[in-house]
Amino acid sequence: MPVSELIPASPTPHAARGAHQGMLLWVLIVGSSFPAVGLMSEGLPPLLLTAIRFLIASLALWPLVARSSIQLPSLPGLALYAIMGLSLAGFFGAMFWAAHRTSALSMATLYVSVPLVAYNLGRLFGVEQRGGQLLAILVLGAAGALGLAWAQSAGQSGQLHLGLAEAAFFAGCIASALYPVLSKIGLNRGWLSPRAEVRTFWSLLIGSLIIGMLGLITEAPQRLMSLTLMDGLVLSYLGVFSSGVTFWLQQRAMAVLTPSAVTAYSYLVPFVSMLLLFIEQPQRMGWYWLPGSLMVILAIALLLNRDTKER
């Protein structure tokens, strides 16, 4: 099949508007989930927790998936779901490994590359059309997110350093950018279900199995015995909302938007986290938050305006 045939016809304005609204909700859920993660006990195995979190998300989605007769994916679809699961495992595995070996600033700085990487991977696999304006918007958003990352580190000793841990995390960022690209390829070729909840269910379930196996190899499962009731409640919330709902919103948007447009909303996540920080610690508000905030807001506004004009 020619690469040009992988790019589907433009969706209706109503569907595109719903996709953008859903991704704004995605931003709010993801941005507000970080304080919830901080409520969990220290010393728990992160990869095994992620596997459980994805499994909870899969179970939460099951009633939606089971409303109609569910079928096993085709062989190409099953292979693609496995690669998507590997991409999830690659990102979370790299993130947890690098978190103990590099600074939060270095990770935040590298993570702003995800939409740009998604754009280039999309171009490589033919699910993104060439667009200088879109590329400029992504660069603007990346600069704004980078500005927020530096503002977050103001007054701290964290500095950007490039080494093995940073290289590993950047490889994880590439894996994260690959997930929406693979979803778009599978949709356009008819390998994946047209229903967002079914795609979300299979990718999270297979991702849970792969991350769980990785956790069993590299972590101590007995540490899960120290889970408290509060840990279980937080983990359930993260599984249902921060994983199940957010991945469903992302898959829903993937049917309408391109991978780079979907991942561009990640630029707004540090902005939401900043607002929560100001509510908790208003004394940290300063002018150095303003440039990055204005740039990410402008980037999303330009993205919405560009999409509206195209449709």
Rank of each mutant, 00 (worst) to 15 (best):
G90R: 05
L182H: 00
S4K: 10
P11R: 04
L80V: 03
A94F: 03
T50Q: 03
P73A: 06
L138H: 09
V240F: 12
M254H: 03
L55K: 00
G244R: 11
E280H: 11
L61Y: 02
A79N: 05
L80F: 07
L164M: 06
Y119T: 03
T12V: 02
T109S: 14
M40D: 04
L235F: 05
A16R: 10
A171F: 13
V27A: 02
A66R: 13
L148E: 01
P45I: 04
R306N: 13
L164N: 00
F92M: 12
R223E: 14
L6H: 10
H14C: 05
Q251C: 01
A145K: 10
V272P: 01
G43Q: 09
S157H: 08
M107G: 13
S4Q: 12
L238K: 06
P35E: 08
E197S: 15
A60S: 12
L75Y: 05
W248K: 07
L140T: 03
S106G: 08
S243A: 15
R53P: 03
A118H: 10
Q21D: 00
F169N: 02
T200P: 06
L182N: 00
P13M: 08
L44M: 05
R223Y: 09
G22Q: 00
I210A: 13
A15W: 08
A145V: 10
V272D: 00
S153C: 01
R306K: 15
A89F: 15
L72Q: 04
M213C: 11
T246H: 08
P11E: 07
G286W: 04
G212T: 06
F34G: 02
I206G: 02
W97E: 09
A36S: 15
I7W: 15
L214H: 14
G43D: 09
R17M: 11
Q159K: 14
V65K: 01
I185Y: 09
M84P: 07
R199P: 00
L268F: 07
Q250R: 00
L72C: 03
I56M: 03
G158E: 15
Q156S: 15
L298M: 15
A16E: 04
M274F: 12
P221V: 08
S69R: 15
V139Q: 03
A57Q: 10
G126I: 04
V198D: 13
V198I: 13
L75A: 13
Q222V: 13
I52Y: 04
G18S: 12
M95D: 08
A60L: 10
R101G: 00
Y119P: 03
G155F: 06
Q156M: 10
L138E: 02
Q71I: 01
G190T: 10
P13H: 11
L294F: 14
S157K: 06
G43T: 09
S176M: 13
L276W: 07
E310R: 14
M84E: 08
A60T: 08
P115Q: 05
L304H: 13
I297Q: 09
T200R: 09
T50L: 04
S266D: 12
L204F: 12
I29P: 02
P115C: 02
L55R: 00
D231E: 13
L275F: 07
G141L: 03
L160R: 04
L164W: 07
Q250Y: 07
W26D: 03
